[in-house]
């Protein structure tokens, strides 16, 4: 009984027999079964058109499955009324390859946006924005508009916006796709840090380096089906040995916490804003 309770409440994402068909007959996902536990860091990999993005969109109810069951953070997304959707989305954070920052708002205003939407008090919003400006290293760029930022800075601002509401689940769709290797590593480190503080992170990526460096759970999608699910996987299953060796070396990179992060987040283990 105790184990059953634990099992039930430690799962944050459940996809059971999920199929997604786009009209008229384009099958994007077929009979997907996937459980993700709270606190996990999951890479979703696969070639373009494999169904990764569709699967991600199911998780924040941008798309609705054609059949099957999708449950996220205790919410049955197949039965969720449209009026409840905004409140569900406040429990998750979403990060995109193209950042999706509001072009006419400053970095700080972009970060504060989910807090305004959630009607968080101005005092608390200021505190959280200040904290996240420090965490992502954009304190000096708080008043800058997105157009004045580099790609890496924009993605850090977008990451702060996605995480500022202290989400239970953070979904990142190709977060390093537009970034140079050094900046991509910064973003990876931040995602890792956010995960270490209790947020479940699901990242769809084509980045071999990112996956092999972190050696976390890897779910590979191909032809609309899950073709591989490894607890500590690498990008390519067949090259696991090679990637694994590289990964071990690179893993040091993500375990070393950036100085700014260490300063504003002194300890791990508890989730806070």
């Amino acid at each position: 009984m105790h184990a059953a309770w634990r099992g039930r409440f430690s799962i944050i994402v459940t996809l059971a027999g999920v199929t997604k068909v786009y009209p008229p007959r384009s099958v994007a996902l077929q009979d997907i079964n996937l459980d993700i536990e709270r606190g996990e860091f999951v890479f979703l990999i696969g070639p373009s058109g494999a169904g990764k993005s569709t699967l991600m969109r199911l998780l924040y109810r941008e798309e609705r499955a054609t059949s099957g069951r999708v449950s996220v953070n205790g919410h049955d997304l197949m039965r969720m009324r449209p009026s409840r959707l905004p409140f569900f989305r406040r429990q998750i954070g979403v990060l995109f390859q193209d950042f999706k920052l509001l072009p006419d708002k400053s970095v700080a205003q972009n970060m504060a946006f989910p807090l305004i939407v959630a009607e968080v008090s101005p005092r608390e919003a200021r505190r959280r924005v200040g904290l996240w400006l420090e965490i992502v290293g954009l304190r000096d760029r708080a008043r800058a508009l997105p157009a004045e930022l580099s790609g890496g800075e924009q993605q850090r601002a977008a990451l702060a916006r996605a995480a500022i509401n202290n989400p239970a689940l953070l979904i990142a769709d190709e977060p390093t796709g537009n970034l140079d290797p050094r900046t991509a590593q910064d973003i990876t480190e931040l995602l890792h840090e956010i995960n270490c503080r209790g947020t479940t992170v699901v990242v769809a990526t084509h980045s071999v380096e990112m996956v092999d460096r972190m050696r976390r759970r890897v779910v590979e999608v191909g032809g609309g089906r899950i073709v591989r699910d490894e607890v500590r996987g690498s990008y390519r299953a067949l090259e696991d040995g090679v990637a694994g060796a590289a990964g071990r070396g690179l893993a040091v990179g993500v375990q070393t916490r950036p100085a700014a992060v260490a300063r504003v987040w002194p300890g791990r283990g508890s989730r806070r804003g």
Binding site: E62, P86, F88, R89, R90, K100, F113, V117, R161, N165
Partner: peptide, 11 residues
Amino acid sequence: IMKLVGATNGF
């Protein structure tokens, strides 16, 4: 973006 961060229809 507003929809993604949880803005209600009224908002």
